[in-house]
């Protein structure tokens, strides 16, 4: 069994929209996958199924040998701690500082303050947000928020990183840097990364597997190519 598997997954939302139709997908440990497709193709839904924000209407989602859609509620937090996620809608906490948002996944795990400070220092440096450490998140620009989101997704060095449109608010150059950063994380940190984007242009120059989604179905997967 692979690190991550979708087996005959269907997702129909309560309003009757068929977001995913018969999705079969296998991702190896340490792989970098671009999830491509137009808006509304079902990319975010795939992410949501992986952290069980939603459950599939039928079929199974496996992660590291655990069936995510059948996991006991009390084990769910521990699954999520192994996943870093950049939400398409960011989901930062507006009344809190950059630092507080960044270390949120660590706080949730109950890490010690000193360790949080050390990890945060490194990440802030990479994102060049050191000076804004104690700024409230609402004061940040769209791009800075986006970077912070990515920082929050990787600070606890999760095995799986899900990045849902992480370049949405970034200009070309920052977007390129962001994707390179994620690539580096995959190569050097050994994380598996799934990055969803509707903007194929941004990822053109990068190698890696591309899974194309359209109207809830996988239409192309260059794994063999």
């Amino acid at each position: 069994m692979e690190f991550l598997e979708f087996r005959r997954v269907y997702k129909i939302y309560n309003n009757g929209i068929r977001a995913l139709t018969n999705i079969n997908l296998e991702v190896r440990d340490g792989e970098f996958v671009f999830l491509l497709g137009p808006t509304g193709a079902g990319k975010s839904t795939i992410m949501k199924l992986l952290i069980r924000e939603e459950i599939p209407t039928s079929g199974d989602v496996w992660l590291e040998g655990f069936r995510v859609n059948r996991l006991e509620d009390e084990h769910l937090p521990y699954l999520r701690r192994n996943i870093g996620i950049v939400f398409q809608d960011l989901r930062l906490l507006p009344m809190r500082t950059v630092f507080e948002n960044l270390v949120f996944p660590l706080e949730v795990m109950g890490l010690r303050r000193t360790l949080m400070n050390r990890l945060a220092r490194d990440v802030l440096e990479v994102l060049s947000l050191e000076e804004k450490r104690n700024h409230l998140v609402e004061w940040l620009s769209g791009g800075e928020k986006q970077k912070l989101c990515v920082g929050r997704a990787v600070i606890h060095q999760p095995k799986l990183v899900l990045a849902d449109e992480p370049t949405g608010n970034l200009d070309g150059r920052s977007a390129y840097e962001m994707v390179s950063g994620l690539f580096q994380l995959c190569r050097e940190g050994g994380s598996t990364v799934i990055m969803a984007t509707h903007n194929e242009r941004i990822v053109k120059t990068f190698p890696g597997r591309r899974v194309y989604l359209d109207k809830g179905e996988i239409v192309r997967d260059n794994i063999e190519e």
Partner: peptide, 16 residues
Amino acid sequence: EHEIQVCSMMGATERF
């Protein structure tokens, strides 16, 4: 609600 949602997605236990 929003904050609770984020907490939960980051892997916070109910106790937390």
